[in-house]
């Protein structure tokens, strides 16, 4: 098989390309430059703007292949995997990167299995091995206690899902940059689905946890459900999204969609603020790749301080309202 290029799965929602796709371009540029090959993107969706596809080119993609049909409007495993296999057989990618999102982490294993090739989950580091040109994929395992570097030497394509927010989105290099945009005619045979999407219930929080640059997490130290409001106020003042530890969710103070940690979500925001969070290893597994970690806790020995960059030791019931007030009154200028 003659494989050569690096491909990314560019995810879209309602015809708009998502941020994760731009992060994958950043990864893809680095890898394709080292390998001396093209960077290509595959897009599955419906009625995608030409401008959005050109935008991928402007950010560094050399070839965009877009497959569009009403059946591809939302992610459904069967049509998406059939179309991805179609691209595999037409273009023979050497490497495929997808986001470690609900879509990527479902679609890529489904495709890798049928293609009989290797897939590495939730990578935080990618590189090209000197000499062999193989993809080196580094990922956390065992709740972030170890890092493993993995490669797929003898099977193609080499596939990875990449942790969202583990790198910056690729900026626009040049408006109207030259590249190839192919709208692939869809094949109706590939679009059958035994799954039907009948509805959607949006999150309670305005901004999704995955997209949030700032996340404020309530831990057991908040003591009771009513005190969630204090943390919500701080999150709002900071322009961040509210989240919770397992303890808080298990007590029913916030819903499961807020849970960060081993049995919840893995997040990697620019700024993580943990309030009354003790730092159980199961929680750390879901947040320790955050760019900057701030903790507020009464116990100076709390585990959370071991992974924090900045800590305030004291009574959260005094500190949090004071902080919120200062931010709102403009006495602290670190609000956007």
């Amino acid at each position: 098989m003659n494989c050569s290029d690096v491909w990314i799965l560019a995810e879209q929602e309602d015809g708009k390309i998502l941020r994760i796709s731009h992060e994958l371009i950043t990864r893809g540029i680095a890898l394709s430059q080292k390998r001396g090959c093209k960077l290509c993107a595959m897009v599955f969706g419906n009625n995608i703007d030409e401008a959005d596809l050109q935008d991928l080119v402007d950010r560094g993609v050399d070839k965009v292949v877009s497959v569009e049909a009403p059946e591809l409007q939302h992610f459904l495993i069967e049509p998406y995997s059939a179309c991805m296999h179609d691209i595999l057989s037409k273009y023979k990618p050497e490497i495929i990167l997808g986001g470690a999102t609900s879509t990527g982490r479902t679609l890529l294993p489904y495709v890798a299995m049928t293609a009989y090739t290797g897939l590495t989950a939730d990578c935080t580091g990618l590189d090209i091995e000197e000499g062999t040109n193989n993809l080196l994929q580094t990922r956390p395992a065992i709740g972030g206690n170890i890092m493993a570097t993995i490669k797929t030497p003898d099977f193609r394509p080499q596939m990875s899902t990449v942790r969202p927010r583990s790198t910056k989105p690729a900026p626009i290099l040049q408006k109207g940059r030259k590249g190839e945009i192919i709208r692939l005619k869809h094949n109706q045979k590939l679009l059958n689905s035994r799954i039907l999407k009948t509805g959607f219930i949006p999150n309670e929080e305005e901004q999704s946890l995955h997209d949030a640059e700032i996340v404020v997490v309530a831990g057991r130290g908040i003591k009771k459900a009513e005190n969630v409001q204090l943390i919500r106020d701080l999150a709002n003042a900071l322009g961040g999204t509210l989240a919770a530890t397992r303890d808080v969710v298990d007590r029913g103070w916030l819903s499961y969609s807020h849970q960060v940690g081993l049995s919840g979500k893995t997040i990697s925001p620019k700024l993580y603020v943990g309030v009354g969070v003790s730092g159980a290893i199961q929680h750390l597994a879901g947040m320790q790749t955050s760019e900057t970690i701030v903790a507020i806790n009464n116990d100076p020995e709390a585990q959370i301080f071991k992974v924090a960059d900045f800590g305030i030791v004291g009574d959260l019931f005094e500190i949090v309202p004071a902080l919120t007030k200062m931010i709102k009154e403009g006495k602290l200028s670190f609000v956007k």
């Binding site: 035994r194 799954i195 959607f200 219930i201």
Partner: peptide
């Protein structure tokens, strides 16, 4: 459960 909420699906 997806990033922006919950999909309702039948299979």
């Amino acid at each position: 459960l997806v990033e922006e909420g919950s999909e309702i699906l039948e299979s």
